[in-house]
């Protein structure tokens, strides 16, 4: 499995679209927004709040992008069949996809944090840094599971736009780009059940020194389990041997 994870990670790091949308875009958007909102490095300041929401966006985009389209393509192109006639099991294949997707979330988070430190002078206590990175990382599981589900159910042509809409929809409804508080109340109610909202909220809460709110952790955990189950079912359906 380590060899499989290695080539899966390599191929994404060499993919221009991944590098632009997932690695470069969140950092650029962070630097741009920070200047618009006028900085501020205390816990509630724009530099810190935006660092968390842009990391969250980067992680969300990375986990969707490294799963949906590659997975849909591999099924259609015959690469999956090639793997199915090696000793690799279907279970190893799906677990590797999930693990790799989570690995590919890290560059987005770390680069946005690095930009915040270097360009805005943001500084947190070591415990808060550790907590933030860990939570932003592990909290991406529901998105990777969603990506694998979509990739299992749709052909590549359809998967591409669905991945985009899904990523932007979760970003907007989760308040990653604009604060949820500015939304009309109906939309706010929708936002409050989104995994992306609670995911970001965990990060904001950690940088503010409040730890992880249990309700956020529970909601993200529930989404992770639910989407995980759906992903496994969808994957079984996609790889069934008729």
């Amino acid at each position: 499995m380590p060899g499989y994870i290695k080539i899966e990670a390599l191929r994404m790091l060499r993919n221009k679209r991944y590098v632009i949308f997932v690695v470069a875009f969140p950092v650029a958007f962070y630097l741009l927004s920070v200047n618009l909102y006028g900085g501020g490095t205390d816990a509630a300041g724009a530099s810190v709040v935006l660092m968390v929401s842009m990391s969250a966006y980067g992680a969300l985009a990375a986990s969707m992008m490294s799963t949906v389209v590659p997975w849909a393509q591999e099924r259609q192109s015959g690469w999956l069949r090639q793997l199915q006639v090696t000793p690799l099991t279907n279970r190893t294949i799906i677990v590797t996809k999930l693990v790799t997707s989570l690995l590919l979330v890290l560059p987005s988070i770390l680069l946005v944090c690095a930009a915040a430190v270097l360009a805005q002078g943001v500084w947190l206590t070591p415990a808060r840094w550790a907590g933030l990175i860990l939570v932003m990382w592990a909290g991406a599981v529901p998105f990777a599971a969603l990506g694998l589900t979509v990739g299992s159910l749709l052909p590549p042509d359809a998967a591409q736009p669905v991945a985009m809409i899904g990523t932007f929809g979760l970003a907007i409804l989760g308040g990653l780009w604009y604060p949820v508080d500015l939304m009309p109340s109906a939309l706010k109610a929708v936002a409050h059940v989104m995994p992306s909202f609670h995911y970001t909220d965990m990060g904001q809460s950690i940088v503010a020194g409040h730890g992880v709110p249990p309700s956020d952790a529970l909601t993200v955990g529930a989404w992770a389990v639910a989407l995980g189950v759906v992903a496994v079912a969808a994957h079984r359906r996609a790889t069934v041997r008729g």
């Binding site: 080539i7 191929r11 192109s77 690469w79 069949r81 090639q82 006639v85």
Partner: peptide, 16 residues
């Protein structure tokens, strides 16, 4: 691991 196969069609991973 006792079987190897070349299927009729199948693309490779372009980035590798």
């Amino acid at each position: 691991g006792e079987v190897g196969a070349m299927m009729q069609s199948g693309e490779l991973i372009p980035e590798l």
